[in-house]
């Protein structure tokens, strides 16, 4: 019981500290140094790319199994978004396709 709550507390504190680290490191004035601000401006596109790779990481371990379906579904999601520019439509198409693919293959 005590152990469980300590384990939860440790996890919570470490996670919060990481999320807040930037705000502690750069205190006082409310602006970032120029190079960090520029980095913050270009990071989103890069982070989104990393997150996509993160979600599709199954491809690496299992090229014939669960990975390739994700790759196909992600590709179709991207294409359908380029076509209609509807977030909602592309999400439904991509997710439905993925759910079908992992059941069929």
């Amino acid at each position: 019981m005590t152990y469980t709550f300590l384990a939860i507390a440790v996890s919570a504190v470490v996670t919060y500290a990481l999320r807040g680290a930037m705000f502690v490191l750069i205190k006082g004035d409310r602006t970032l140094p120029g190079w960090l601000e520029r980095l913050g401006g270009v990071l989103p596109s890069a982070i989104m790319a990393v997150l996509v790779v993160y979600c599709l990481k199954g491809v690496k371990t299992d090229f014939t199994g669960s990975g390739i379906q994700g790759l196909i579904a992600a590709f179709v999601t991207g294409l359908s978004y380029k076509w209609k520019h509807s977030t909602f439509l592309s999400m439904i198409i991509g997710t439905a396709l993925y759910m079908i693919l992992i059941r069929v293959f």
Binding site: M48, V52, C55, G78, M91
Partner: peptide
């Protein structure tokens, strides 16, 4: 997978 889809869309 809808989260993956959202990352791809963004």
């Amino acid at each position: 997978f809808c989260m993956t889809a959202l990352f791809v869309i963004i």
